[in-house]
Deep mutational scan, measured.
Amino acid sequence: NMECRVCGDKASGFHYGVHACEGCKGFFRRTIRMKLEYEKCERSCKIQKKNRNKCQYCRFQKCLALGMSHNAIRF
């Protein structure tokens, strides 16, 4: 039983190089595919399941810091 490295929810698998839940997987995919840019935040918000949708900037930064990558495809 793995935990999502981004928000701590139950991970659904290994997505983009990191154990992640469906919510964070979809969030990362949409951000990359649609080339979304979020308003910069300096607060280093703590991303948890209950508040993961509050600060998209910090959520995406955490995805990147954990090594999530669009190129991380498993063979």
Rank of each mutant, 00 (worst) to 15 (best):
R74L: 12
H15G: 06
K46P: 13
R52V: 14
K46H: 13
S44P: 09
R5H: 07
D9K: 04
Y38I: 04
C7S: 04
M68W: 09
D9C: 06
R30C: 06
C55W: 01
G8P: 00
I73P: 15
A20Q: 01
A65N: 11
G23A: 13
A65R: 10
C24M: 03
R5G: 11
E39S: 10
F60A: 00
H19E: 15
G26F: 09
Q61W: 02
A11W: 02
K40H: 14
R33F: 15
N51F: 11
K40N: 07
S69R: 08
S44G: 13
G67S: 02
M34E: 14
R43D: 09
K35P: 04
C58W: 02
R33A: 15
E37I: 10
R33S: 15
Q56I: 03
E22I: 08
C45Q: 01
F28S: 03
R43Q: 14
R59W: 15
E39I: 08
G23R: 08
M34Q: 15
K50D: 14
S44A: 11
L36G: 07
Q61P: 03
K10M: 09
K54P: 11
C45E: 01
N71K: 09
K40L: 10
C41P: 10
T31H: 00
K54S: 10
S44W: 06
N71L: 05
V6Q: 00
K25W: 12
G67K: 05
K10D: 12
K35Y: 04
R30P: 00
S69P: 04
R43S: 11
C63A: 03
L64A: 05
H15T: 08
Y57T: 02
I73K: 11
R5Y: 10
N71Q: 13
N1G: 07
C63G: 03
K10Q: 14
R30L: 09
G26K: 13
C4V: 00
C58M: 03
R59M: 12
C58L: 02
N53R: 08
F27L: 02
M34P: 03
R30Q: 13
L66N: 12
I47A: 05
I73W: 09
F14K: 12
I32W: 06
G8A: 05
N51C: 04
M34L: 12
G8F: 02
H70P: 15
E22C: 07
F27C: 02
G67H: 02
C21V: 03
C7V: 01
R52T: 12
N53K: 09
I32M: 09
I73E: 15
H19F: 15
V6L: 03
R59E: 00
N51T: 12
C21S: 01
C63K: 01
K49G: 15
R30V: 08
K49A: 12
S12H: 07
L66P: 03
R43P: 08
M2K: 07
G67A: 05
E39K: 13
L64R: 05
C4K: 02
N71H: 08
G23P: 12
C4E: 04
F27S: 03
F27T: 02
H15W: 13
R29E: 15
D9M: 05
E22M: 08
Y38W: 05
C41T: 06
G26R: 10
G26Q: 12
H19T: 13
N1S: 09
M2N: 07
C41G: 02
K10P: 07
Y57K: 04
K10Y: 06
H15I: 08
C55T: 05
S69A: 12
C45P: 01
G17S: 04
C55P: 01
M2Y: 09
C41S: 00
A72C: 09
E3F: 10
S69N: 09
Y16L: 07
G13E: 06
C21R: 01
S44E: 15
N71S: 13
R52K: 15
R74N: 12
E42K: 07
G17M: 08
A11L: 06
K25S: 14
M68V: 03
G26W: 08
R52P: 15
F28V: 04
R59G: 01
G23E: 15
C63H: 00
K25Y: 14
G8D: 05
A65Y: 06
K54V: 11
F27A: 00
R43H: 10
V18T: 07
R43T: 08
K46R: 11
G13Q: 06
E3G: 08
R52W: 06
K46F: 13
E42A: 08
S12R: 05
S44D: 13
R43M: 11
K25V: 14
A11Q: 04
L66F: 05
E37K: 11
F60K: 02
